[in-house]
Simulated assay, not measured.
Amino acid sequence: MIRLLIADDHAIVRDGLKQIFAQESDLEVMGEAADGREVLDCLRKVSFDLLLLDMSMPGTSGVELITLLRARQPNLNMLVLSMHNSPQVAMQALKAGANGYIPKSCETELLLSAIRKVALGHGFIAPELAEKMVFDATAPVHPARHGELSGREREIALMLTNGMGVKEIAQQLAISHKTVSTHKRRVLEKLNLSSLADLIRYTLQHDLQN
């Protein structure tokens, strides 16, 4: 029996996953969490074999949460189930300590296969993402320009690449959405990048999360 902890801030997603898992004789949901704090609480209070983790939740989440969980429980099996169908985000999650990564757009059978493999201690990447990651590895390296960023710009850049949205960043930093958007635009301009995907790739290439 594979005991699961589901971490997602949307109740409808958690309920849907529980309905899927209820039909599988070898899967059992032991608990659920809606944010990073609840995940950390469950880590202490709930016995489970695999954490099914969303990348974007209120409070501590994404790469920061994965890194924290890996530090607190080195043998924890973590499978990220995320709305971000991006090889750059997947690579960040894996570098932080996740065992696998799969987008929410995947088929149910692929999700079940991923859960069973990760629960055994194996890694798993959705096939379409794995293929993109191979091509990304050969992409040209962006010149290092992050020394031009202000402290606030760098902070927001890392929050963006950690999977946080403009609204979530504004709430956490107690600033307006417009201010966050302005910082985001300036970051892209200073680094000579054109998109969030480019920013994520830049962050990985220059190891800015560490």
Rank of each mutant, 00 (worst) to 15 (best):
G59F: 00
N85D: 11
K18H: 08
Q171Y: 03
Q23S: 14
L50S: 10
T182C: 09
Q19S: 10
V46W: 03
H142M: 08
K18R: 09
G163H: 15
V89M: 13
M30Q: 12
Q92H: 08
L160A: 01
D8M: 00
S82E: 02
G121C: 02
E64Q: 06
H122T: 14
L110I: 11
G163Q: 12
S105D: 04
Y202K: 14
A11L: 04
P127N: 04
L111T: 03
K184L: 02
T179Q: 10
L76S: 01
Q171E: 06
V39S: 10
E131D: 04
L94G: 00
A119Y: 03
P127H: 07
V13C: 01
V180G: 08
Q23V: 14
R3C: 08
F124Y: 10
G163I: 07
R14N: 02
I102K: 14
A137E: 15
L4Y: 01
V80R: 00
S195Y: 05
I125Q: 05
P103G: 03
S176E: 11
L43G: 01
A137H: 05
L68H: 05
G147W: 14
L120G: 12
V166N: 07
N77D: 15
A174I: 01
L149V: 12
L51A: 03
E189H: 03
V180C: 04
P127C: 04
I115V: 13
T161S: 12
D49G: 06
V39K: 00
H10V: 12
G59L: 00
E107Q: 08
S150T: 10
D49A: 07
V63A: 13
A174Y: 07
G31L: 00
A93K: 04
K184T: 09
L27M: 14
G62V: 01
E189W: 06
I6A: 04
Y101E: 12
